[in-house]
Amino acid sequence: MTVADAELLVEVAGPVATVVIRNPARRNAMTTAMWRRLPELLDGLEADPAVRALVLTGARDTFCAGADLGDLDELLDAGDASIAVAAEERLAAFAKPTVAAVRGACVGGGCQLAVACDLRVATTDARFGVPPARLGLVYPAPTTRRLARLVGPAAAKHLLFTAELIDAERALRVGLVDEVLPGDGLAARVDELTAAMVARSQLSVAAAKEIVDGRADEDRIAWWHGQVRASGEAREGVAAFHERRPARFGWTPPARH
């Protein structure tokens, strides 16, 4: 395997960017270089006004089998300050909607990344697992809390205590994934979801994401309401509803300084 074989690929089609995890020799495990690269990619995609949604997926028939354990010492020494946690936090804070499109194994660091996305859509052959108890590791605290918020304490403890793999149907029941589809239906459904997201008011979507994720205080919420008044988004949305036509939303986020 050459170094170039383990990489994150970016594909942009219209307003949707797709980040592909590719490491064929290790079932798309994330290397140190890949963990470091992910926040950089996300910074660029977030700053691009043409990109309105992000899809994270794995190359071919595997999402991501976890962190490459060849880099274990570096991850252990860092603890909760690891580059893996930093990449997860950056993905969770991405200002635009994110969808994990999951095929095959979604384990360890792969599950960590999927949980950091807004939505998770999986094929029937997907398998999910959180293996620290099998390896003698402590799952990072931010990662553990995010998992528990998503699936609830009992389901999180089952995954963490047993390190068992669960199938897509059980993942759906506990809320780890939002939809389960036949393998040949995944791409079309992801396209459908992202098309709906990018057609909506980006002001509404961005505000909702911040509020749901608990990142908007009272001042920030007031700022969002001010953006509604100043932008004309609501007037356009209501007019489009009454005229039975698609809304022509035009709000874009202010540049960050």
Rank of each mutant, 00 (worst) to 15 (best):
D80H: 07
L176G: 05
W35D: 06
A86K: 11
A206V: 04
G66P: 04
L69Y: 08
V12C: 12
V16L: 02
A216Q: 04
K96R: 08
V107S: 08
P153G: 14
G129H: 02
E11L: 12
I166Q: 07
R27W: 08
L54K: 01
R170M: 12
A114W: 01
L45K: 04
V121F: 12
C106E: 03
V205D: 00
P140I: 08
E179M: 14
F128C: 00
L113M: 15
A122Q: 06
V16P: 02
R60F: 15
G136A: 07
P253R: 15
E88C: 10
G58F: 00
L165Y: 09
I21N: 04
A187E: 13
L75P: 00
P24Y: 01
A84Q: 11
R146I: 08
T2P: 01
I21E: 02
I166H: 03
L75G: 07
T162H: 12
Q112S: 15
L75S: 08
V130E: 11
N28L: 04
L160S: 08
E74I: 13
A81G: 15
S231P: 07
L160W: 02
D219T: 10
A100W: 02
K209G: 12
S82Q: 02
D80Y: 08
V177Y: 01
A156D: 03
T57S: 10
E89S: 10
V174F: 09
V12A: 12
P15N: 06
L135V: 08
R90W: 05
D191C: 08
A78W: 03
D80G: 05
L56I: 12
A50W: 02
A207P: 07
L69H: 08
V102Q: 05
T62N: 13
F241R: 11
V115G: 05
H242W: 14
R248A: 14
L119H: 10
E243G: 13
Y139T: 14
H225T: 09
R60Q: 14
G183W: 05
R103N: 09
P132T: 12
D217N: 09
A240Q: 05
